[in-house]
């Protein structure tokens, strides 16, 4: 996207943020995103803190789960909400501040041109990407696993920064409520034969994002969850 996004594109692009007990960061993240993208939808996944109020105050549209259902469920709720609200493009963005809103435009460019249905952020395509060693190793293992299972030749799999066209969002139906949704999205991209591309994105690893995000041990739980969701679709 060499030219700046048009107001129409900005108005029809919805940024979906799943949040669970993120009152510390959600306000800053929403305000930052809204500098360029007015439609920010925060799915408050049954938070017990003031995440919903903080997000609303920062200008987000808040959709609140009455009880915690997991990130996958929250994203699917966000997709459903955005589609009914007329979204043309949807961007999934993390609530812990590890993504940069400046890169949304870059992520949307392949979709806006109509060439692709899905743009997947990849931290490993970013030159000089600094990823903690153990995390890098686990993510590379996930990449190999995904290549075998879904057939998608990706460089990064569990990256929450993605952009979907309306068509893609309508095709994708996440049934894995928890963390296995990241693999499920890739499966569905593959099974629906959606045109996808990877776009380099930068991930900021802060103490907060590492504390809030998946621990390295969670990789095992994600794997089990994913396998079970494949056995019992």
């Amino acid at each position: 996207m060499s030219e700046p996004p048009t107001p129409a594109l900005r108005a029809s692009t919805f940024i979906v943020i799943a949040a669970y007990n993120e009152e510390r960061t959600i306000g800053r993240v929403v305000r930052d995103v809204r500098r360029g993208w007015p439609r920010v939808v925060v799915v408050d996944d049954g938070s017990t803190d003031g995440s919903a109020a903080v997000a609303r105050e920062a200008g987000a549209e808040v959709v609140s789960h009455a009880v915690n259902r997991g990130q996958g469920a929250a994203l699917q709720t966000g997709f459903a909400y955005c589609l009914t609200a007329g979204a043309r493009f949807l961007v999934t963005f993390d609530a812990d501040g590890q993504h940069s809103s400046d890169e949304i435009e870059r992520l949307l460019a392949p979709l806006a041109s109509g060439e692709y249905d899905v743009a997947l952020g990849s931290r490993f395509l970013e030159p000089g990407a600094r990823v903690p060693e153990l995390r890098r190793l686990l993510l590379k293992g996930a990449v190999v696993f995904t290549r075998i299972v879904s057939g998608l030749q990706l460089t990064d799999t569990h990256n929450g920064f993605r952009a979907l066209s309306r068509r893609a969002a309508r095709c994708i139906e996440l049934r894995a409520d928890r963390m296995a949704h990241a693999s499920e999205i890739l499966d569905q991209i593959s099974s629906h034969r959606l045109a996808w591309i990877e776009v380099p994105v930068h991930i900021r690893y802060t103490r907060h994002s590492r504390a809030k995000g998946q621990s390295n041990l969670d990789a095992f739980r994600v794997l089990v969850d994913y396998l079970l969701s494949r056995i019992f679709p």
């Binding site: 549209e61 959709v63 609140s64 009880v67 699917q76 709720t77 459903a80 909400y81 009914t84």
Partner: peptide
């Protein structure tokens, strides 16, 4: 949970409740 959440959000927008931006 999803249906309830979306219905509530839409209701809030329609009634202008909560100063949605």
């Amino acid at each position: 949970v999803r249906r309830l959440a979306i219905a509530e959000a839409r209701h809030r927008i329609e009634t202008g409740e909560g100063d949605e931006s």
